[in-house]
Every structure is written in structure tokens, then in C-alpha cells.
Amino acid sequence: MREPDRIVRMKTVLSRTGLSRSTIYRNIRKGTFPPQIKISTNGAGWRESDINRWVADPVGWRAANDNNELGGKAGKHGAG
């Protein structure tokens, strides 16, 4: 059985990717970085598996085409 995906916060994403906060948000808008998921009223984070996939192949990463996204908004690729 697959282990549940952990949620990582901005501080972890910054250290794992080496990107700045503004670059992360810009790349989310462009569809070249995993989108955040809302975890509370004022909190958001990323699926650790999404960050791991991005770190493994930052140039080739595109929003997942997986149908098992949990309410993800990855379908808005053309916006922007």
C-alpha cells in the first residue's frame, strides 16, 4: 500500500527547490510549478510528491494530468 502524501509548507519548498518565493508564485501562474493546496482557512501547502517530481525534472515538469488530483485546479493551463 502506498504511503499517504505529506503536505510541505513554503519554508520547506524554498529550501528544497532553491527558488525564491516570487519565482514559485510566478511559475505556478505559468503552470510550470506545482500549485498549492489549501489546508486551512489561512494555510496552504504542497504535496511532497509534487515537489519531489518537480525537483527531479524542473524543466520537464508540467501540471499533472493525473485524474486522481484531489480537487486540484490544474485544468487552468491557458490562463495568464
Rank of each mutant, 00 (worst) to 15 (best):
M1G: 04
R2D: 07
E3P: 00
R6K: 15
R6L: 12
R6Y: 07
I7N: 07
I7F: 01
I7A: 08
I7S: 08
R9T: 09
M10E: 07
K11Y: 08
T12P: 01
T12K: 10
T12V: 14
V13N: 05
V13E: 03
V13S: 05
S15G: 10
S15Q: 15
R16T: 09
T17Q: 06
G18K: 04
R21K: 15
S22K: 13
S22F: 05
T23Q: 15
T23K: 09
I24R: 09
Y25I: 10
N27S: 07
I28F: 05
I28Q: 12
I28S: 05
I28E: 10
R29T: 13
R29Q: 15
K30R: 15
T32H: 07
T32G: 03
T32P: 02
F33E: 05
F33M: 09
P34L: 09
P35C: 05
P35I: 04
Q36F: 00
Q36N: 12
Q36Y: 00
I37S: 04
I37M: 10
K38A: 13
K38C: 11
I39Q: 02
T41Y: 06
T41I: 04
N42K: 13
N42E: 07
G43N: 11
A44F: 03
A44W: 00
G45P: 02
W46E: 00
W46V: 01
W46N: 01
W46T: 03
R47V: 00
R47D: 01
R47Y: 13
E48L: 12
E48M: 08
D50S: 15
D50Q: 11
D50H: 10
I51A: 03
I51E: 06
R53D: 10
R53Y: 04
W54R: 01
W54I: 02
A56C: 02
D57T: 03
V59A: 15
G60Y: 06
G60W: 04
G60Q: 08
W61K: 03
W61I: 04
W61Q: 05
W61Y: 15
R62K: 14
N65S: 12
N65Y: 05
N65K: 13
N65R: 12
D66R: 07
D66E: 13
N67P: 11
N67Q: 09
N67F: 04
L70S: 14
G75P: 00
K76V: 12
K76P: 00
K76M: 12
K76C: 06
H77P: 02
G78Q: 09
A79G: 09
A79C: 06
A79E: 11
G80E: 08
G80S: 12
